[in-house]
Computed example of a mutant assay.
Amino acid sequence: MVKLIKTTLDNLKRNNMQGYFIEDSKDLFPLLDKLILQGSTVGSGDSVTLEQLGVFDFIRKGNYIFYDKHIENLTSIEKRELYIKNFSVDNFITGCNAITVSGELVNIDGNGSRVAPMIYGPSQVIVIVGKNKIVNNINEAIERVRQISAPLDAKRLKKETPCTKLDRCIDCKHPQRICNSFVVIARQFDYERIKVIIINEDMGY
Rank of each mutant, 00 (worst) to 15 (best):
R168G: 13
T75K: 01
I178G: 07
V127W: 04
S40K: 07
I84L: 15
D202M: 06
N107T: 02
K34G: 14
T161Y: 04
L32H: 05
P30H: 01
V145G: 07
T94R: 10
T161Q: 07
S88E: 14
H70L: 06
K26D: 07
K34R: 13
E72H: 09
G45V: 04
Y64A: 08
I134K: 03
S40P: 04
I93C: 10
K61W: 08
M118D: 12
L82Y: 13
V55F: 05
V2D: 11
V115T: 07
S25E: 12
L31C: 02
E201M: 06
I178S: 11
L31I: 09
I185G: 03
D90N: 15
V48F: 07
I36P: 05
Y120L: 11
V183W: 01
I185Y: 01
T161N: 11
Y20D: 04
S76Y: 10
V42G: 13
L32A: 05
G130R: 11
N15Y: 08
D190A: 05
N63D: 15
D171Q: 13
N136W: 00
C179G: 01
M118S: 08
V115P: 12
K79M: 12
Q188S: 13
T161G: 11
R168I: 14
T75D: 12
D10S: 01
D27P: 12
R187Q: 12
E81A: 07
D153E: 09
V196R: 02
P175T: 04
T8N: 02
N200S: 12
D24F: 02
V115G: 03
F58D: 12
P162C: 07
K85A: 15
N107K: 04
